[in-house]
Design a protein around this nucleic acid. Structure first.
Lengths: 125, 125
DNA sequence: ATTATATGATTACAGATGTAATTGATTTAT
DNA sequence: ATAAATCAATTACATCTGTAATCATATAAT
């Protein structure tokens, strides 16, 4: 897990699209975010430029348009973000955090059994 | 759960102290954060003022010094922050999020059994 | 070839945030 | 009573973020 740059809330939306569909043109990202979040094309371009500057995204010219691709993995960013959240809000303690989610978000019974399975697998390690 | 103001990363540290020891003087908060995060007293004062302006903290004058106390509950802030994190990083889906934490952070066997107990309680609802 | 259009690059601008310094008012020590 | 120390209020300032507009350049249409 290499160090990931700090990715803002709005930038996450862009990164998610890149992780799912890389390589992807600016136009496609713009279209998707216009539909999804009703963002102005110029706004999306700004976010793309900032992500390139942060070295979270790279691009290749494909004639007229650019093709963007992630330079950091989703896994690494998710891990960094999760760590930061856990530390900030729960003082780094996993148990209270998991308890919070299990209590607050209603879990369907299938989700509960999936989790139990996950826990059982953990137990064996 | 009343609407909570947005609380920044640094501000969280201040809030945590207030939630644990309210009512508390600026001096005590300053001392604790100097020890904990090595923050300058002036920095802490700025954070306190911003939190008062955001209506996350209130204060009462106690002669010379102020006594600060939270105006928003820890529970409400934790919930809001958790929601925002879940949405941003895991698209709002609980299962992948829990799976991430269970897989990445090593859980002690006692933590695992506690979690199982929590899940069993959930099942009954 | 000139004009219109599309798209990437640069610039803009207000509010949030991290990180304080300066000012002002009040209390305390001399 | 005056000077010194304390503590809150105001101001500072660079960077990040959200949200674009403008500028420049390349391609397409006439």
């Amino acid at each position: 897990m290499s160090a990931t740059p700090r990715i803002s809330e709005a930038e996450w939306e862009v990164m998610k699209i890149c992780w799912n569909r890389s390589p992807v043109t600016a136009q496609e990202i713009i279209d998707r975010l216009a539909a999804l979040d009703d963002w102005h094309p110029k706004t999306v371009k700004t976010l793309l430029n900032r992500l390139v500057k942060k070295r979270a995204l790279g691009f290749k010219k494909d004639g007229r348009a650019y093709l963007y691709h992630p330079l950091v993995t989703e896994k690494d960013c998710v891990s960094a973000e999760s760590r930061s959240f856990l530390d900030r809000v729960f003082g780094g303690s996993l148990r209270p955090m998991l308890a919070h989610f299990v209590e607050h978000q209603k879990l369907s019974s299938s989700e509960i059994s999936e989790l139990k399975t996950l826990l059982k697998q953990q137990e064996k390690k």
